[in-house]
Amino acid sequence: MEELLKINNLDVKFDTDEGRITAVENISLSVKQGEVLGIVGESGSGKSVTAKAIMQLNPGNTIYNDDAEIIIDGENVIKFTSKEDLMKIRGGKVSMIFQEPMASFAPAIKIGDQMVEQLLLHKNIKKDEAKTISLDMLTRVGITDTEKRFNQYAFELSGGMRQRAMIAMALSTMPKLLLADEPTTALDVTIQAQVLKLMKDIIKEYKMGVIFITHDLGVIAQTADQIAVMYLGCVVEKGPVNEILKNPKHPYTKGLIAALPDVNNLEAPLKPIPGNIPSPLERPTGCVFRTRCPHPTKEGKEGKIDMKLVEVEPGHWVDQCGAKCG
């Protein structure tokens, strides 16, 4: 199947008062049409920065490396500078759903007006056509009374409803790629189940590629086809979701799975990953996970093994240091 998005050797650094911070290091990922790529990791692992790099939404002090490529439809978006080019990706070919739906709608503009505005920007259509499309999309995501909701403000909707409206808005321009950054984290479990089901149906129907960012392994297991586990800006393990969750090789992936409370076995003790995620200013050299690794190899502990993914099973890639000690 056609590759929609290809990220090659991406580094993202930020210039700050305290020095240059590495947020993402040497990431290569790809998403095919109709495929859901799940990115998991703790806060500070660089998941959102990666997504924002695709949309070119990172702030002005961001530095990308010269040989980095983010290829969407044969074009390297990192090299885009003009407003027109950027508009083609933002909301055009790529749409994004953010974590907190209250913060991502403008509070003083009606939901409907915001939906129409972005359609007018990206599609060559008239205002009433845009309204018809928006109303259709709202119905599609299971919002009743669409005409009324269309004329309401974000604060008048409940959390679940707002996230549905956000999804409707992101999908109405028919993007090829959807970036969902923790779309269900702020929702209650019963509402989360509704929203996930809706997203799965829509992804199947429109055959779009999706990057699904979350810290919740359960949500990933239920939605993704491929999974990439990130730690401190690096992908430490990636592959098909079934393979990674059933047969994890990297000690960090194993730790994440073990730390989850298991509802089927209430007696099992909770196993945290020891230590804290290091500050990006004190990034370890060599294997980034070595400061928290439960049983590191000697070379790994001394930081002598560089980060590099190796293929252990067809399609299952693990960082070489983690493959040895895991």
Binding site: T190, A193, L196, G218, A221, Q222, N242, L245, V263
Partner: peptide, 24 residues
């Protein structure tokens, strides 16, 4: 029962059998 069934399982083969609650 609905709450318990809505917890996403980390086993990808156990596709969710969430008892879907309509509305809010």
């Amino acid at each position: 029962k609905a709450l318990l069934s809505s917890i996403p399982s980390i086993d990808p083969e156990k596709q969710s059998k969430a008892i879907e609650l309509t509305g809010e």
